[in-house]
Amino acid sequence: MTMELDREVSLTRDLPEYGLRAGDIATLVDFVSHPNNGEEGCVLEIFNAKRKRNDKSFGESLTEIAVPISAIETLRSDEILAVRTLAKVN
């Protein structure tokens, strides 16, 4: 399945350096080339779970991160959303 910009994706692995876990949802912002011809990457925007009234998008932006493309996947119709507290990064 082709990944489209400005769509929600889920993480396929834990990213403890950002306090994120597999299954967390992010918005795909951009695709980036690896500087040394390695795996293609992508830029993700991480939002909190709060929504504004009558708004279909997620709440406030917390951060943007760059990850390998293999660290994300498109959302499927058999998945549901869940809420957890963002882990603190030391």
Rank of each mutant, 00 (worst) to 15 (best):
P68W: 11
V83H: 07
D14T: 01
F31L: 14
S33F: 06
I25F: 02
A82T: 07
E60H: 07
N37L: 15
N36V: 13
E17V: 00
D30A: 11
T63P: 02
E73K: 10
S61A: 15
A26Q: 01
N48F: 06
S57Y: 11
G23V: 07
I46V: 09
Y18A: 09
S33C: 06
G59P: 01
L75P: 02
A26S: 10
T63S: 15
E40D: 11
P35L: 11
V67H: 04
L81I: 11
G41P: 01
G38C: 03
I80K: 13
A71T: 01
E40T: 09
I72N: 02
S33T: 08
S70R: 08
N36R: 15
G23W: 07
A66W: 07
V67P: 03
S57N: 12
K52I: 14
G41Y: 01
N48D: 14
K56Q: 10
L44G: 01
G23R: 01
K52P: 03
E79C: 01
H34E: 14
S61P: 10
D24V: 00
N48E: 13
T27G: 08
V29D: 12
A82I: 08
V32N: 12
A71S: 14
P16F: 09
V32L: 15
T63D: 15
S77F: 11
I72M: 12
P35F: 03
I80D: 14
P35Y: 09
A82S: 08
S70L: 05
H34Y: 08
N36P: 00
T74V: 10
R51M: 15
L28T: 02
L28I: 04
R51Y: 05
C42E: 01
D14L: 07
G19F: 02
D14C: 05
V29T: 06
L81H: 05
V83W: 09
L44Q: 06
E64C: 10
N48K: 04
F58T: 03
R51C: 04
N54P: 00
I25N: 10
I65K: 04
E17L: 04
V83E: 12
N37A: 13
T74A: 15
E39K: 02
S33H: 05
D78R: 05
R76F: 10
E79D: 14
L62M: 13
E45S: 09
D55R: 05
E64I: 02
D14S: 04
E17G: 00
I69Y: 10
F58S: 01
G19E: 06
L62P: 04
D14P: 03
I65V: 11
K56P: 08
S61H: 09
G19N: 04
A71W: 01
L75Q: 12
R53P: 05
D24T: 00
K52H: 13
I46C: 04
V29C: 11
G59D: 09
G23A: 03
G19A: 03
Y18M: 11
I65C: 03
E45K: 07
A82V: 11
I25E: 10
S33Q: 13
L62S: 10
G19Y: 02
T63Q: 15
I69S: 07
E40P: 07
D55N: 10
S57M: 14
N54S: 07
R21H: 12
S70I: 05
E45N: 04
T74P: 08
D55W: 08
Y18N: 06
H34P: 01
